[in-house]
């Protein structure tokens, strides 16, 4: 059982992020870390490989400046190897450009039975890359998985819905996006962290993938960022003093928001 996990390396959400006023994109020149939402896919993949009794987990990532910090974290958790696509030509890539790169990189992994992704990244939030990757690879796509089981050449997925979950089955190989929080990502052991240092990371360029630079980056982007604005500061909340009728006011407030 060989599982590929697409992982994104993002600026540390604990540090205040900044937008570049020229490119109108998130600044990514500092150290990048493993997107927490991808740690669930990594954990799921490791569990599936263990349950299958063999195989390995391969990571696929696209990041600027040959960044491997986030990959090392996932390798320390137990992934066997990684493919990193890093190329200046990739700056400005939109979701589809990213999907093209990831799909090409995934094709290089021999015998991939299953491709896992997060449902969306924690810095871009387009939530479209998994389906685009599946489309480009001409593979079935299952989204919002809360539980995955592999039975021979079939993957059985509990697919999270607003009301509960759907049981979905599809043939392998397939692309499945994993909902955050459905498994407990392991902490890499210190031994794992030390071992990760010597695990193979294959760093590739756009040309290595056989892609034309005009298909990716700013050149290939089908989107244009027209303007960027600071998010509005959070407004002060409403304080309701409890005079015995507070619950009515709170219910009315929530009703007004249409969340009840």
């Amino acid at each position: 059982m060989n599982v590929v996990v697409c992982v994104k390396q993002i600026p540390d959400p604990a540090d205040p992020g900044a937008l570049d006023p020229t490119t109108k994109t998130l600044k990514r020149d500092g150290k990048l870390i493993l997107d927490e939402s991808d740690s669930y896919g990594v954990e799921m993949a490791l569990q599936l490989v263990t349950a299958a009794g063999g195989g390995e987990v391969t990571l696929v990532s696209m990041a600027p400046n040959g960044e491997v910090s986030g990959l090392r974290t996932a390798l320390a958790m137990g992934a066997a190897k990684a493919i990193l696509v890093s190329d200046d030509a990739l700056a400005g890539s939109d979701a589809l450009g990213t999907a093209k790169v990831l799909a090409k990189a995934i094709e290089r992994v021999e015998g991939a039975d299953l491709i896992l992704t997060a449902t969306e990244s924690s810095d871009g939030y387009t939530g479209t890359v998994p389906e685009q990757v599946a489309g480009l690879l001409d593979l079935p796509s299952v989204t919002f998985a809360k539980h995955i089981e592999v039975d021979g050449s079939t993957v059985k997925v509990q697919r999270q819905t607003e009301a509960g979950y759907d049981d979905v089955e599809c043939p392998l190989p397939a692309v499945v996006s994993v909902t955050a929080g459905v498994v407990e990502p392991r902490y890499p052991s210190f031994k794992g962290i030390m071992a990760a240092k010597s695990k193979p990371v294959d760093t590739l360029t756009v040309a290595d993938l056989g892609l034309d630079a005009s298909q990716v980056g700013w050149a290939g982007a089908g989107q244009e960022i027209v303007s960027i604005e600071e998010a509005p500061a959070r407004e002060a909340g409403e304080v309701i003093e409890d005079d015995g009728t507070a619950f009515e006011k709170i219910v009315a407030y929530l009703d007004n928001l249409k969340v009840l």
Partner: peptide
């Protein structure tokens, strides 16, 4: 210890 390994280990303990 390799500086990256040290940082990753300390960072892991911080998360833990």
């Amino acid at each position: 210890t390799d500086a990256d390994v040290r940082e990753e280990i300390i960072g892991t303990v911080r998360r833990f």
